Amino acid sequence: MEKFVEILSDKQALVERSLTLVVEKIKTAISERGQCTLALAGGSTPKPLYEALSHQPLPWEKLQIFWGDERYVPPDHPDSNQGMARQAWLNHVPIPDSNIHPMPTEGNEPASDADKYEQELRQVFNVSGSEFPSFDVILLGMGDDGHTASLFPHTEALKVRDRCITVGNKDGQPRITFTAPLINQARCVMFLVAGASKQPALAQIFAPTASSEEYPSRLIQPQGELWWLLDQAAGEILK
């Protein structure tokens, strides 16, 4: 693993830096493998990144878009990660609909829908049962509690090692989420973290020893590159 930590002056600088990096990674993946597989994060921090990406002149037909986690709500719900990314970015570029792979969240059976998404992943990446797909880029956020994707502290999802997709749990509400082993198979994982409220969790995640049950972002140790892009307010504690 190669680890990079950058503290940017403010959230706008964080967005600009993440845009530069993501575009670079997309172009490299397409050059080397003919396409780019990209998993998106939800939340407020990546939204301006998606808006900026909508203005980039990229070969959209060569992108395959996934989500790292999703609330168990319809895509037109205000809390839908899919809905946010479509409104900010995907609806504004000529990307084929068959290249967009949202998590299914309308079947009232989260475990069954997690299975469906697992099968879709395996088909797109053409990997067998014991293998994990390797994403080119996985974007992640981090909550004040140190969670990432829908891997929340002290939940069963943290223990899943033999699946790509599982059911997360946030205060009794189901989510669908990538597992830690799937995230760790990626060529590039990029955390985008903003705000002073993230400092206590970051201190534990970057500590030499701490509990990954308590701070799940510590589980993320990808085989490729790990980028932590922080604004000044979040990163102050690491200086």
Rank of each mutant, 00 (worst) to 15 (best):
K170H: 12
I237V: 15
L90F: 08
I26C: 02
A201G: 05
F125D: 00
L229D: 02
D171H: 08
F206E: 04
M1C: 07
R86H: 08
D136F: 09
I65N: 00
G168Q: 01
I165Q: 01
P94H: 12
S112C: 12
A149Q: 02
S44P: 00
N184L: 13
A39M: 06
S217P: 00
D145F: 06
P78G: 05
P94K: 13
S212A: 14
P153G: 03
A157C: 06
F191I: 13
A149C: 09
S150Q: 04
Q64L: 13
A157I: 08
A194P: 02
N81Q: 10
A41H: 02
Q204N: 11
T148S: 09
N99C: 15
G146N: 01
I26A: 00
I183D: 00
W89M: 13
V73C: 07
I138Y: 00
M84W: 03
Y117T: 10
I237A: 05
E214M: 06
S134V: 15
P104G: 05
E225K: 09
H92A: 07
M1E: 06
L151N: 00
P59M: 12
A39H: 01
A233E: 14
T105E: 04
F206W: 13
P57V: 09
Q223R: 13
Y215C: 04
D162R: 09
I26L: 07
F66G: 00
P102K: 11
F178D: 00
S112V: 15
H92T: 10
L202G: 01
A234E: 05
V189G: 00
E214C: 04
P216S: 09
S134F: 10
P46D: 08
M190S: 01
L182Y: 03
R218F: 04
G235E: 04
L140P: 00
A207K: 08
D145V: 07
P222S: 12
H92L: 15
I138W: 02
S150A: 07
R163N: 06
I30F: 06
F191N: 01
V189W: 02
P78D: 05
L19R: 13
V22L: 15
P75R: 11
N91F: 08
E120S: 11
F206V: 12
A207R: 08
E16A: 14
Q82H: 15
A88Y: 07
A39E: 02
G168T: 09
A203C: 10
F135S: 01
L202A: 04
S130V: 15
E131W: 11
